[in-house]
């Protein structure tokens, strides 16, 4: 009996030793040298793996961050929209660098062709994917630029931040939005844009991307931008550009004075999170005052950020 035990023990010990030696050499041979910083950076990233940074996942973003820090000694052009400034600061601290504050972004829906504003002229009967409907026809309301309302953006969102409003038939973005950009890619019509959240969450933007001539646009949708250029003329900061019968407000130049909102004949320019308008317009001094503070916020923006929005 003892003999059996002995043999068994010896075999096992021998087997273990031999395996350990082989393992050791294999491990030496195939050792992957990885910067330990990658693990540390990866730790602080949000692990959403949303791809909002432009890289396949948080791990690869961590690798890119470390690489950039080692080679260029800066993290310029790299940003994690989900984690925001805090995460980027932490990551930069690990890498011994500093990052400039980035203006947080949010997705905005640049179409207001709701069921009431752009009544359906035909019925769509088919699968609920905008991508297919976009290839099939112009849209129920007749606007070939507007929202198809079939929710590809909702399906693409990993953060539960965009939902269809059954009453208007349009998607709505809530506070959970981290500006990962998934919906921007998912929308076949390019309606969704990432814009700076703005001070106190205040934003002004043209909620339309219709490039048709005014008459046609207006025929299809009550609240379409008809390209009348009134906002362009009234804007004191040259923040508005007119292109193909369509106004666009540059969020960097815009000082949120709200003049354009007032003159827009079709109410296609939206203001968000502003206090209810007083009867009388604000005095000039106040406007200048506001602009100063705004200017400070906007100066901190980075060029790369602007590019990613357009």
């Amino acid at each position: 009996m003892n003999e059996v035990l002995m043999y068994a023990l010896m075999t096992l010990v021998l087997l273990g030793t031999v395996s350990a030696v082989i393992l050791y050499f294999v491990a030496q041979k195939f050792k992957v040298v990885e910067d330990p910083k990658i693990d540390l950076v990866d730790e602080v990233l949000p692990k959403a793996n949303c791809g909002g940074c432009g890289f396949p996942g948080c791990r690869s973003f961590a690798e890119v961050l470390v690489k950039s820090a080692n080679e260029k000694h800066s993290l310029e052009g790299l940003n994690c929209p989900v984690g925001g400034n805090n995460v980027m600061k932490e990551a930069a601290a690990i890498l011994g660098l500093e990052v400039e504050e980035q203006e947080p972004l949010i997705a905005v829906i640049r179409c207001n062709g709701s069921k009431a504003n752009s009544p359906a002229k035909v019925n769509y009967d088919g699968p609920s994917t905008c991508a297919f409907a976009h290839n099939l026809y112009a849209g129920e309301g007749g606007c070939q630029f507007g929202c198809l309302g079939l929710g590809d953006c909702v399906a693409s969102c990993d953060f539960d931040a965009i939902h269809m409003n059954p009453e208007t038939g349009l998607p709505e973005v809530n506070d959970k939005c981290v500006a990962c950009g998934a919906c921007v890619k998912a929308c076949p019509r390019g309606i969704i844009e990432l814009r700076p959240k703005g001070k106190k969450d205040r934003r002004i933007f043209v909620s339309c991307i219709n490039q048709d001539k005014g008459g046609i646009a207006k025929k299809n949708c009550e609240v379409a931008c008809i390209g009348c250029s009134k906002c362009f003329k009234v804007c004191p900061f040259e923040a508005i550009t007119m292109n193909n019968n369509l106004a666009y407000i540059d969020p960097i130049k815009c000082k949120l004075c709200r003049k354009c909102v007032e003159v827009c004949p079709t109410n296609s320019i939206h203001e968000i999170n502003f206090p209810v308008r007083k009867k009388k317009p604000e005095t000039e001094e106040e406007i200048v005052e506001t602009n100063k503070t705004m200017a400070v916020t906007h100066d901190t923006k980075q060029d790369s950020n602007i590019e990613s929005q357009s």
Binding site: L136, Y137, A138, G142, Q144, D212
Partner: peptide, 10 residues
């Protein structure tokens, strides 16, 4: 000028 085709696009 642009005119709508059968799918509604101009």
């Amino acid at each position: 000028d642009d005119a709508i085709d059968s799918s509604g696009y101009r």
